[in-house]
Amino acid sequence: MSDLRESLINGVFEMMKLAAFNVPDDVKNALKRAYEIEDNPVAKANLGAIVRNLEVASTERIPICQDTGTPTFFVELGEDFPLKAGLREIIEQATVKATQEIPLRPNAVNPWTYENSGNNVGRFVPIIHWEVVPGDELKITYLAKGGGSENTSKLYMLSPVLGLKGIKKAVIDAVVEAGPKPCPPIIVGVGVGGGADMAMKLAKKATLRRLDDKNPDPKLAELEEELLHKINSLGLGPMGLGGKTYALAVKIEWAHKHPASLPVGISTLCWAARKSIAVFKPDGSMKVLMPP
């Protein structure tokens, strides 16, 4: 069992390293497309620098951004996966190792004393979302999200009478308020329904979807396209300095809701969308699904 523990620590460490130096190909391709269609010179210079930065980070193994983010994990633990006890400690150990060796910026600060833990481990940090699923595999999604784009997250507890129109307005308003702050081009995640907590969690999960996948619900796929078009029509552009592409994609997730509530969570993810996904088999072997 200790071999499996070691494999998992090393595997999670590898996932963190992959994400520090690379964004997934769908994000990279979307940024390249944004560069190609842009004719505003300032926007073009911003996007050109972003695309070059991705190449330099990847080939020279320099972190993409100096804000290496809050380590956040979405864990899908198979009911029959042989190791269940101590998974948090495994993730914490991988985080400490990643912080020292990559290096990552220490970003876990006590909110009362402002003391920095120095190793990205603290109370409830790394942030871990647990889910138990059928099967014998362990699937981990890692997100390294910076403070700038987390700060422009929004929760609207709308009156249900506002309906679809209210949801659309909430998304547009959140983006206008965010302006240059989340380092656009961004990915906009929208979580509709559930309660306040569920709406925010779904919004963040939505930012993890591949940009080139299509929402299986045709109505939502259409809504995602409509919102993307409307957001970009505001002309905020890369870095909020004007241009065609403020958002690379809008992704929507939803849950049933209380009759009296209409929660809309909005999560903004900067272009440096550092995420990695891996599946661990019961023997500890690891298959990286993202970035390729």
Binding site: N53, V56, G148, L241
Partner: peptide, 13 residues
Amino acid sequence: LAHPGGVSAVATK
């Protein structure tokens, strides 16, 4: 002077 946000690897170089 606005430096593109997140473009840290290029700046580091």
